[in-house]
Design a protein around this nucleic acid. Structure first.
Length: 342
DNA sequence: TGAAGGCTTC
């Protein structure tokens, strides 16, 4: 006879191992479910990398099922944190705001719960409401490094680089130490606001002042920072001089910057390096590698070099790389639980 | 009140 705890653990196990469909089968066949069971399933959906949007929609649908479940099971703080994350990933402001309302009505105040508070900051910021994110942030009594980082990320995507750097000072004086993720967000903030000097200064001081050793993602951010600002040769040299093997992300951002700044020679050089990288370094998923072929093909197309465009297309076919359709993730006005896939 | 939960560059 299966038992509730064993089956719930099994849902965790399948979801953590990327087999969300087996997790759902276990969930559907259970005779009895606790809130922990529902949370395991909802969280499982929210943390899938593949088909993330579809899974986040499933999470929100399951959440409405949970609300109307006749067994009397109630959402908990864990449930709310998970569904806020689903809204963030989907850019679903309407659903996020509804869930915020539900949190205020049913559970404790978000300002006293660092998990829920951080979830709200993240949700509002990712859904385009930086003011609401900042309001939720200010109300929180306890803020940890994840809360500060979520706020910095929000400021970064809204182009508020100076404010993000000021946030680092306030964070420091509050006694919270930044972590490697915080720096990734801060560099992104500098990048989107064109704060090249400030970003480089922070990069050179992050170890001595904050005790955080730069990792490959930080080097990637600096490449992006230099590239977007048009310092393409500097960005190239920066990649070459990295103390570790450069990853595809660094090369890809330089390729994109070369395209934006119309430097066909640099774009061609970088595009070729990118395609020479082993597929495992470029991406685990073959579908994603199409972006690199398309990018290089676009370089040639913008320069009117149609023979090379054709050559890249042929190489793509030869390597059986399929083109991937694009999509948008911001949905402010929508039926918040519709079933279509983006 | 856990079998658990929040932040990351192209």
């Amino acid at each position: 006879m299966p038992n509730l705890m064993v089956e719930t653990t099994l849902i965790h196990f399948y979801a953590n191992n990327k087999d969300i469909w087996s997790a759902r089968t276990v969930f559907d066949e259970m005779a009895e479910r606790s809130s922990v069971t529902w949370n395991a399933m909802i969280k499982g959906y929210c943390s899938q990398r593949k088909k993330a949007k579809k899974c986040c929609r499933e999470a929100l649908m399951l959440f409405t099922d949970m609300l109307s479940d006749v067994s009397g099971v109630k959402p908990t703080d864990t449930t709310m944190v998970s569904v806020l994350s689903a809204c963030s990933q989907l850019g679903e402001l309407y659903s996020g705001a509804c869930i915020h309302g539900l949190i205020e009505k049913t559970i404790f105040s978000p300002e006293n719960d660092v998990f829920i508070g951080t979830g709200l900051v993240d949700m509002y910021a990712k859904c385009g409401c930086i003011d609401s994110a900042f309001y939720a942030f200010r109300l929180m009594r306890e803020k940890n490094v994840l809360t500060w980082t979520a706020m910095a990320t929000g400021l970064a995507v809204h182009g508020k680089g100076k404010e993000a750097l000021e946030l680092l000072d306030t964070m420091e004086s509050s006694g919270v130490k930044p972590n490697p993720v915080t720096f990734t967000s801060l560099f992104a903030a500098c990048c989107h606001a064109g704060l090249v000097e400030e970003g480089l200064h922070l990069f050179h001081n992050m170890r001595s002042r904050f005790g955080v050793t730069p990792q490959i993602q930080h080097y990637g951010c600096i490449v992006d920072l230099l590239g977007r600002a048009g310092h393409l040769n500097e960005a190239y040299d920066f990649i070459i001089e990295m103390p570790m093997k450069p990853d595809a992300i660094s090369w890809r951002s330089l390729l994109s910057a070369s395209n934006v700044h119309g430097d066909v020679a640099m774009a061609e050089k970088v595009g070729k390096i990118l395609l020479r990288l082993e597929p495992t370094i470029r991406h685990v998923d073959m579908a994603d590698t199409s972006e690199d072929y398309v990018a290089l093909s676009n370089v040639y197309a913008s320069a009117g070099r149609w023979q090379q465009v054709e050559m890249v297309r042929k190489k793509m076919k030869l390597n059986r790389v399929r083109n991937k359709p694009g999509g948008s993730s911001i949905r402010t006005i929508s039926n918040h639980l519709d079933h279509d896939e983006l």
